[in-house]
């Protein structure tokens, strides 16, 4: 069995770590060998962050390299573009269409490339872009973008919805659980 590689990319503070932990829990319970690599410390402060989730029969490296990612789960458009070289030729970019300006754009040193997803599509890469922020706000908080994205990602996996919900219950703090289940279901039903 080939190892499946997922990259979760976004802006520090968007909750990429929680998303990777839900995935890790889900995949371990599903019987896979799982390796994940996280980012802590300095780059968390509003910088570009990436976590890796790899699963299969036996996984060694916790890192995903050039051309290896089967999925890039992106919390922000620019970040999807930043890690494009990691996408496998038949891989999928699943991205939130939200734009968050990085400091060089804020200071005027650079322009935000609004059409970047079109550029990626022209290269032949598979993209599924949608407004996860809007669904997160409908679920109760813009902080649920991570779980909305997981909900949408779940439609590409051959795993029972209950397995995903069990993983959420195990990882998410109880007081935020209802909101996150709602976020997951909004994300999932947005493509089903």
């Amino acid at each position: 069995m080939k190892t499946t590689n997922i990259m979760i990319v976004g802006v520090g503070g968007q909750g990429t770590l929680l998303a990777s932990r839900v995935l890790g829990h889900l995949l371990l319970e599903a019987g896979y060998d799982v390796k994940m690599s996280e980012v802590h410390g300095m780059s968390q402060r509003g910088g570009s962050v990436v976590t890796y989730v790899r699963f299969g029969e036996k996984v060694y490296s916790p890192i995903v390299c050039q051309g290896e990612a089967d999925f890039i789960l992106s919390f922000e458009k620019l970040e999807a573009a930043r890690y494009l070289s990691c996408l496998a030729p038949n891989g999928l970019i699943l991205t939130n269409s939200q734009e968050i300006s990085p400091m060089p754009v804020i200071t005027g040193a650079a322009e935000y490339p609004h059409e970047i997803l079109d550029d990626i599509q022209k290269l032949g890469a598979r993209i599924d872009a949608f407004d996860a922020l809007d669904l997160a706000q409908k679920a109760g908080s813009s902080k649920c973008v991570n779980i909305v994205l997981l909900g949408r990602l779940s439609t590409y996996f051959d795993l029972d919805e209950n397995a995903w919900l069990d993983a959420l219950r195990s990882v998410v703090a109880p007081k935020f659980l209802d909101m996150n289940i709602k976020a997951f279901q909004l994300g999932r039903s947005s493509r089903l």
Binding site: V11, M42, R45, S48, L78, A81, P102, P104, A110
Partner: peptide, 9 residues
């Protein structure tokens, strides 16, 4: 296309 860097802030 170039992708603007996103340093921590």
């Amino acid at each position: 296309a170039s992708v603007p860097v996103r340093p921590p802030v």
